[in-house]
Design a protein around this nucleic acid. Structure first.
Lengths: 190, 190
DNA sequence: GATGGTTCTTAACCAAAGTCAAGAATCATC
DNA sequence: GATGATTCTTGACTTTGGTTAAGAACCATC
């Protein structure tokens, strides 16, 4: 189980045996039931999660409605936006399936940076990769229609379409549930 | 001029005098005329830019239309999405005003990481800050209407609304120029 | 201040998403 | 397999944005 984290980090840069050893030994693994809220609006976040199994949804509540920001699945990091910032969260993190994660805290991270400079390098690279991913997501979202986005979900994350209820998917692609229903109908006619 | 970069980096973490000195001495400053394309679709990007003065627009061309992804102004970094990746760019970087920037290359960055470990720490922190900013932008874009976005532009970046032509602004907030025109009209009636 | 070019606004019409409301399908649980 | 709750679909109507096309406003330059 723990080796999955090392495998994930190794994708981006080579890691010394010593660091692999430390990461393996200090990693905290935890499992949560479907429906568990790992973070609520107003909470001060002090944990970030690396998903080993399951699915976490990030959403905000605006005008009484849940708006899904993102879904995180196996091999992805679900980190509160203001992780380590000591300010209250504006969003929620919910396990939408039974989920197993490794947990990271700001304190643990700082200690690792201090003791193992290579860990800082690993995190810089990861952070840069994630930065590019988010910039691409934003560019992509801005240049597509809801229908485009649903079709690309079907293509690139078909598991999500099966795993996630429509009302959560619809806000993820930027429409109301009724509209996603109509988009589905339109597509099936083509 | 060069001190602005050090001042910018110092906002996020304290920097040793030695590193300040090196950054100041090795920084390449360059100025470009309004209209200059710093990066074109298909180019292999090998420079990233930190804006000292002016404005750079990032856009892609899709179905014959320019879609503005982002505007970068003073104190912001305009970095190609695949900077240092050796793959062709999908987007353009255009100076939409006379612009002065400091230029960074992958080679220079690698050398700095090697020689000055603290530089890696500085870059990790900056990268994390930018990551949070992009995640917030994406979350924000997903949960607002074009009208919301125009109002928030007026509030948060009024300079842009003055500096940038409507057809570039409109694709930035996700509509056609005609629609932004209508949005303006709607707003003025309220 | 006339000329031409770019940028912006307006109008008429069409397509897509929002709203409201009803009802069908699905699922869990007893 | 009946019950109730949740989730999904459909329909009628409204609002908003896209499309096409025309012309107004603004600018630069001669």
């Amino acid at each position: 189980m723990r080796n999955e984290i090392v495998a994930y980090l190794s994708k981006y840069t080579s890691i010394s045996d010593e660091l692999i050893d430390v990461i393996t030994k200090t990693t905290i693994i935890n499992s949560f039931k479907k429906g568990t809220l790992l973070l609520k609006e107003g909470d001060i976040p002090n944990e970030s999660y690396f998903i080993l199994k399951g699915c976490i949804r990030s959403y905000i509540v605006k005008e009484g409605e849940e708006k899904t920001i993102d879904f995180y699945t196996e091999e992805q990091a679900a980190s509160p936006l203001n992780f380590g910032k000591n300010s209250p969260s504006e969003h929620y993190l919910e396990c939408i399936e039974d989920t197993t994660v490794s947990i990271n805290t700001p304190g643990h991270e700082q200690e690792m940076f201090r003791k193992y400079p290579q860990f800082e390098s690993v995190c810089r690279i990861m952070s840069e990769v994630m930065l590019v991913n988010y910039r691409e997501s934003l560019a992509n979202y801005k240049t597509t229609t809801p229908e485009d986005r649903y079709l690309s979900l079907l293509k690139n994350r078909p598991d999500l379409v099966r795993r996630v209820p429509l009302y959560q998917l619809s806000s993820y692609i930027g429409v109301k549930p009724e509209s996603l229903s109509r988009i589905r109908k339109r597509i099936s006619k083509k």
